[in-house]
Design a protein around this nucleic acid. Sequence first.
DNA 1: TTGATATATGTTACAGTATATCACATCAAG
DNA 2: CTTGATGTGATATACTGTAACATATATCAA
Lengths: 159, 159
Amino acid sequence: MDPVGFTQHDHHSCIAQNLSAVEQMCADQGLQFTPVRRRVLEILLHEHRALGAYEILDRLRDEGLGSQPPVAYRALDFLVSNGFAHKIEHLNAFAACAHPGQDHTPMFLICRACQSVAEAVAHLPSDTLGRTARAEGFRIEKAVIEAEGLCPHCQDATA
Amino acid sequence: MDPVGFTQHDHHSCIAQNLSAVEQMCADQGLQFTPVRRRVLEILLHEHRALGAYEILDRLRDEGLGSQPPVAYRALDFLVSNGFAHKIEHLNAFAACAHPGQDHTPMFLICRACQSVAEAVAHLPSDTLGRTARAEGFRIEKAVIEAEGLCPHCQDATA
DNA sequence: TTGATATATGTTACAGTATATCACATCAAG
DNA sequence: CTTGATGTGATATACTGTAACATATATCAA
């Protein structure tokens, strides 16, 4: 479960693997992986960055797959609530999940220069957040952990 | 630096203390603590929860202190960028800072039942977020850490 | 197969959040 | 006194998200 980071990788196979994994999980769980939902995930995977709902909608519209906001939002809701994508609150945008299906609290490193996004996995119990919640008697249901800054590449470019 | 949590406290003096601390800091740093900015902070302190920009704007309007969105957003920008308030991304809302002036990465526990918000302080270097960033060579400039769930009181109420 | 139920999609309209821009006032520094 | 920085007022607009209702498609039991 490596963080999917700022390094090069075989993008084509990464898309294919993710898609077939999601396909399999939908079959197993009786979820309908419909054309719109599939296409939205493909778009997110292909871009490999966070996209706004309306960017996604524009592409759906170009392909005749739906033209109104609720179409995009519903597909995104499906993907997010089943763990196939995440919403990045800081950007009001969405990104494909780097390790779909595994129940996890994602953590994002967002480069403010090149807009790339790396996903890693938090370890809540040992983090300040988890320990504070325990101490306060708060029950965490969902956590949002996002950092903005400069990725290694853009630090070099700036320097 | 206790987390300001879900327990009772002397709200009147907590408002007064916070306000005078901010006042002092503005004086020290040559920042203009203007009527609009002061009023917005007072509103946030008084509510002691996260407020949307337009909720704040409505109150400003009632008091004749400005009626257009930029007025509220500019005051909020001032408060946020100087560390006197925080934006809670998960809610698209704003809350007064519980320990203004201290440079810190705030962490929020948000009750989805009663909407109360507790602020605590993260220890980035030891958390997964900080360690991951270090390992990836990512330089964090700002972090957003927010948890949604049930506060102790609402857990009891639900049970 | 048929009908009943649940789920997914299409569309309109709107609500909520945020910013760009221009004009004007104030005030401190040179 | 004028220049530049900062704050305010106001209009307009862009971006993000949802409510509500109609239609279509899938699923499953009888």
